[in-house]
Each structure stands twice: as structure tokens, then as C-alpha cells.
Amino acid sequence: MYKKIVFILIFIFISKSFYAQDKLSKVKFGFAYGIGNELKNTNYSYSNRYYKLQVYYSVLQTKHLEYEFLLQPELNFAKHQLLNFYFVKPDDPNYIEKRERYTKLKDIKEYVLNIGFLMRKPILKTASIYVSGSVGPMIIDTETERLSEGFAFSNIVALGISFKINNITFDVRPNFRHVSNAGLKTVNSGYDTTNIDFGLLFSL
């Protein structure tokens, strides 16, 4: 009987310690997986899957809202193909060769560092909704008719919902993404995609 009481007291103490740590923690760390596709059009196809590391830092908490800074290194694997070869104009140098090259299905890798902010509103004791925005410098390894190889930006606007169990947060985040190079290179039509992320975060 004595051992049972001691065990129960230890269990309660540990549980409260974890709860207190979660309440006081300003930092969450985790990862996410996402998939996406281009906004429907007749010019090109683009599908992607990506992996993110995630770091969230709570900057300010009010009675109804919480504001967080986010950092998300990302590796993106995309498939792209030009569907409308007339997108490459005859006044473009070597346009015939470019039409032939760009209409082939391509595998593309993108290396991104998303930096942004998030505004969160609790809706239940263990759930919250939020809106976030980020801008990410990125490197793209393949030139297409829509974007030059090399440096570009990934801009994301997202709506999300989170569910917390102890110090683990489960995340679902539909989002819109625009990729371009801000006119730094000649080819800059960019990509527009709708995506959805699934993530896990651990309170540190």
C-alpha cells in the first residue's frame, strides 16, 4: 500500500512538472510533410512534396491571441512540365530548342529557408487556429520556361489548426505558395500552388 501511494505521488509530480514546462516553454521544435499542385491552368503542370524542420518561438501572448516567430528550413521535390509550348515566343532566342527542352517532364529540387510570423487564437483548451505568412530565400536547381535556375523566393500564406496532447502539438496547415525571383533574373513567371502541411511540434 505504501509503495502504491509513493508511486502515485511521484506520477503526479512528474505529470505536473511536464505540464508546467509546457506552459512556460516559449520554443517548439518539430517537422512537417506537405504536398501540393499548381493552380489549374493550360500552360504548365507542377506538383510537389516537401519536408520541413520547424522552430516556433512565442514572441507575445495576450488574453485572446498568441504571436509566434517561425523558422522552417525546407527541401522541396517538384515535377514540372510545360504544356503549352506557345508560351515560349518565337522572338525568344533558340525558341524551337527551348520548346522541345521545356516540354519534357522535369524533376526539380528546391532548398528553402522560410522565415515568418504566426498569429494564433485558442478555440478549445487543447486546440487553436492560426494564420501565418512567410518569405523564404531559396535555391532552385533546374531552369524552366517559368523560372531561372538559382536564387528565388518562396512566399507562403497559410491557415492552420493545431491540437495539443501534453507537450506534443499536431498541425494541419492548408496554404498558398508563390515562387518567383523578384525580377532578379530574366525568366520570372514563377509558380503558384495550393498545398497542405501535416506537422508535429514538441515543446522544449
Rank of each mutant, 00 (worst) to 15 (best):
P73S: 04
V187Y: 13
L105A: 10
S189L: 05
K23T: 10
L118R: 09
G116T: 03
K98L: 03
L75M: 14
T62I: 03
F117Q: 14
N41P: 00
Y67G: 10
Q21A: 03
I115Q: 11
S148Y: 06
I165W: 02
E149F: 06
L60V: 15
F31K: 07
D197S: 00
I8G: 13
L70F: 02
G190F: 08
L105V: 08
G199Q: 04
F85H: 13
F153G: 00
N84C: 08
V172F: 02
N94R: 13
K98M: 05
N94A: 14
E68L: 15
F202W: 10
N188Y: 03
A158K: 00
F198C: 01
V55N: 05
L147M: 08
V6K: 10
L204D: 11
V172A: 04
K104F: 10
K125R: 09
F13E: 11
Y67I: 15
N76E: 13
R177T: 04
K23L: 11
L70K: 06
S148H: 03
Y50P: 05
I5Q: 08
I196A: 02
Y44N: 04
K4C: 11
T186F: 13
A152T: 02
T169G: 05
F18R: 12
A20L: 12
S148M: 10
N37L: 11
K63D: 03
N37A: 12
P122K: 01
K185R: 07
Y56D: 13
D92I: 10
I123V: 12
Y46G: 02
N94V: 09
R173S: 08
G190V: 07
F163R: 00
K4P: 10
Y56A: 12
Y57H: 08
T142Q: 05
Y57M: 04
S132P: 09
K23F: 00
N48R: 08
K104E: 14
T103W: 07
R49D: 10
L39D: 12
K185P: 00
K164F: 09
N188P: 00
K79N: 14
Y102F: 11
M138G: 07
I161L: 13
A78R: 03
S58M: 08
L118D: 08
N155M: 15
K63Y: 07
I5R: 14
N166K: 15
I156P: 00
S128W: 02
G36L: 00
K98W: 08
I139E: 12
R49P: 09
I12W: 04
I140M: 09
T142S: 03
D22R: 06
T62F: 03
I165A: 13
Y44S: 00
V131K: 04
K40L: 14
S47L: 04
F176V: 02
K4E: 15
S47D: 05
K104Q: 11
I115V: 06
K121F: 12
Y51M: 13
D197C: 01
Y57W: 03
E97D: 15
G136Q: 00
L39Q: 09
F29S: 07
I14Q: 07
G136E: 03
E97V: 05
Y111D: 08
D141S: 08
N43F: 05
E149Q: 15
S45C: 03
F117G: 11
H80V: 14
F170C: 02
A127L: 02
H80A: 15
L147F: 04
S17V: 12
T42I: 11
K125M: 03
G190D: 01
L147D: 01
I35E: 09
E66Y: 02
F176N: 00
V135M: 10
